[in-house]
Amino acid sequence: MGALVLRRFGALLAVLFGLACIVFVLQTVIPSDPARAMVGANASQEAVAAKKAELGYDDPLPAQFTQYLQRLAQGDLQSSLRTRNEVTADLREFAPATFELAFSAFVLAAAMGLGLGLLLAGGGRAGRVIRVFLIGGASIPAFLTGLLLIVVFYSWLGVLPASGRVGDNFIVPDGPTNLLIVDSILNGTPDLTLDAIKHLILPALTLALLPALAIARTLSTSLEQVSREDYVRTARSKGLTERTVLLKHALRNSSGPALTMSGLQVGLMLGGVVVVERIFAWPGIGLYIDQSIAYSDFPAITGATLLLGTAYVLVNFFVDLAQAWADPRIRTV
């Protein structure tokens, strides 16, 4: 197991280095002029040139690359052109909201995926109808789904808020985790917790829709597969009810692929947050990326890409290890 962890860790570092390289390549091909944007419209040519030299855009590429790697190693992602802040500081500010959203959406997707997967595997006409309905639903662009959800649950029913992380009639605590739900529980303010959860429902649902479908599909197919296996047949022949067979025997052994699929869906979700956070004015990394795109704020875009990429790589690293731990046969391969 130790050797495996080591090997996977080595691979993890390689992937992260690859990510860093890709981001660097992107940085060097930007067609815009960030130095000019920073000093403003009325600045002299000299001021622009000075800024360029300061940012290191004048150096030859290999030198830029070494500088870039050195900065990365120190956790320095340069300053955002828009916020004038260190990108690392900005990311620290925006990341908790995205973490909260992505995590909730993930849990929601897993729950929905499990329920739907079982329903689909149950078969019958209902399952097929639901499948078509689901694919159709997941085929609507997320921005439209989001806005329609707001129309229904905010404008018509008036049960959920439309945007933001919390109502502006609340005092938002300054920590310790910056995860609103956790903080509000720690601070003993249940009304804030409730409000934060209410704000979370619609964006999390929008984000969870597509991954839930993917998980459900994977689960249902592996359920069908497993249910043909001998041991399940044996269980059936013992006279156990179909439900017991499905839940007690088949589900347990079908969860592997679904788990893997869930891990993969994190990547999809991290891309989805850009759209969802914009619709729901969710103050997270997605919103940060969206606003940075509009400003061609490349340090910010690449910084956020690095963060999300790293998060994704890490999630899958742990999924890997968890599976190896759970299933000894993987270790031997």
Partner: peptide, 16 residues
């Protein structure tokens, strides 16, 4: 191992 959608966004933002 890289999050495809995030990367696509970065690539397009870079290339225009």
């Amino acid at each position: 191992s890289l999050p495809a959608p995030v990367l696509a966004i970065a690539v397009i933002a870079a290339m225009g």
